[in-house]
């Protein structure tokens, strides 16, 4: 038995209108210190969290969209996006931020860990996780 647990962060809310997206991101950033296998899932309005080109300068609010791009450095290995949610919102992968990942020891690299998946894959990924955190 391995001590490494599979953590899944399930994000279903739009950013900026409520605090959920930022709270989830903060927990991921803090939790990254614990060396678990961390994945993020974006479903429903959660897919809006990854839409690039955000400018909050007129809102007096922190722009945390660029922060998702550093999650690979925090050991996040997978960021999954629900295909159906994306399509219902008229979005494609081109609208989303890209997140690079690199293993600092082996120098194995992945250009973009943001991956579009279908319902069946999502069900499987959630079922395989040890813990699911919902935001």
């Amino acid at each position: 038995m391995s001590d490494v647990k599979k953590f899944m962060y399930l994000n279903r809310r739009a950013p900026y209108g409520t605090i959920y997206a930022w709270e989830s991101l903060e927990v991921v950033l803090i939790g990254a210190a614990f060396d678990q296998e961390v994945s993020l899932m974006f479903v429903d309005d959660g897919v809006f969290q990854l839409v690039k080109g955000s400018d909050t300068s007129e809102l007096d609010m922190k722009n945390f969209t660029p922060t998702y791009r550093t999650l690979g450095d925090y050991g996040v290995r997978h960021m999954y996006v629900d295909k159906a949610s994306l399509e219902a919102r008229g979005l494609t992968q081109d609208d989303l931020v890209e997140v690079a990942w690199e293993d600092w020891e082996t120098e194995e690299e992945v250009d973009n860990i943001v991956e579009i998946v279908d319902s069946e894959q999502i069900a499987k990924l959630l079922a395989e996780s040890d813990v699911v955190f919902s935001f």
Binding site: Y16, F48, K52, T56, E58, L59, N63
Partner: peptide
């Protein structure tokens, strides 16, 4: 409201025809 669209990364060319943008 334009500032809310900008914060969410929604460009003006993605809007439904006839929707008018306003600032505060």
């Amino acid at each position: 409201l334009r500032p809310d669209l900008k914060a969410r990364g929604i460009a003006e060319d993605r809007l439904i025809d006839g929707v008018e943008l306003v600032d505060y």
